[in-house]
Design a protein around this nucleic acid. Structure first.
Lengths: 198, 198
DNA sequence: TAGATTGTTAATCGATTAACAATC
DNA sequence: TAGATTGTTAATCGATTAACAATC
């Protein structure tokens, strides 16, 4: 669904008002059947003989993805990747606000990135008592990840966006984990390069 | 397969010599059947009654993923994410060397990140004539991506690791594209959070 | 040899595609 | 009304799981 949302957003920018599953299928390189099946699973967003209204469909998918409500994010690990996430403005437009960076390096204490304060990890509980935190992004070394993850679960966090190079082992199965394993992605790329040589 | 490689590497670090599909299945949270099926697709790496030799299997999967040969990477876009990639040392251990950063911001000319030089985009052809470039990572704004992609294809690049928020439209279908859409990943996370509430 | 565990075939499941009736 | 295009059912395909014979 995020991919649909992205394409519909692009269409909106281009000023397109309506689109058929056939037109969209050409753009997205998926079958029209697939599109109709997917969209219909979530509700009848189209109209026979007309197609889909781009703005309406965009809004509806936004709702399905939970984008009407704002999400507050903290980033654990204020290294290059953590700072890059804090500086990335696109997330804000989707309602994802990065409200704090945490690290253990005392040299970073009191610093900030694009207006996002960098705090020490032992200030986490204090910060959590003052702010609603929905998501924690993990950009720190993997050996501390499991411990911090479960500490955050205790603080009521609801999701982890995990860039650390391991699969998290959580005490609470209701906490959602979304992995971004950059090394895995590079290896997959390498594998696909080998395959495409034939 | 990258996930197997990661788990086997961890097992090696722990000093584990052999493992059965059953043990591995518990660790990786996939069925033992799945593991045997996957591994056997690529060759008979196991031994009945014994299981799999961790080191051997690790090496074989490395070969399958194309990790014995070094890959040279350039990064287009020396913003926060581009710099973060250049600073990330884990990639080097897997044989992925970042050998150049490119940008259009003149203020960055002559700078470097972790020993990786930052160059201007118009120096690309010159650089390509002097170095073998296997992969280009795209961390620049999306509106320039398609043009640069096809320019790089002309220079003989073989793969694009795409962080730009679009699906690339390439002239050469033999060029491999691996997408890392961070916004999509965040939206997916948001969606999964809604689902897990039930 | 007996026990363990793979390699491999067969059965199941889910996701994708095709087809077409419903309807705007 | 006729044409277009969805919603939805049925058919196909591929991937996952189960089962077990092969074999170390």
């Amino acid at each position: 669904m995020p991919r649909y949302y992205r394409y519909l957003g692009d269409l909106l920018d281009e000023g397109v008002e309506r689109i058929s599953s056939n037109e969209l299928s050409e753009k997205m390189k998926v079958t029209a059947s697939q599109i109709r099946q997917d969209l219909n699973n979530f509700g009848g967003f189209g109209q026979q003989g007309y197609g889909y209204n781009v703005q309406y469909l965009y809004d509806e998918i936004g709702k399905i993805l939970g984008l009407e409500e704002q999400h507050n994010i903290i980033v654990i690990g204020a290294g290059n990747l953590g700072q890059a996430l804090a500086n990335y403005s696109k997330f804000q437009k989707l309602g994802f606000m990065i409200i704090g960076l945490f690290d253990i390096n005392p040299a970073l204490k009191g610093e900030s990135q694009s207006g996002v304060p960098i705090m020490m990890l032992d200030e986490l509980e204090d910060f959590a008592s003052k702010h609603k935190i929905d998501i924690a992004a993990f950009t720190m070394p993997k050996y501390t990840a499991d411990t911090i993850a479960n500490r955050l679960v205790g603080l009521g966090i609801r999701a982890i966006w995990n860039f650390a190079h391991l699969d998290l082992d959580l005490v609470d199965k209701n906490v959602v984990v979304e992995n971004v394993h950059l090394s895995d992605s590079l290896m997959q790329l390498s594998y696909n390069m080998l395959q495409s040589q034939d």
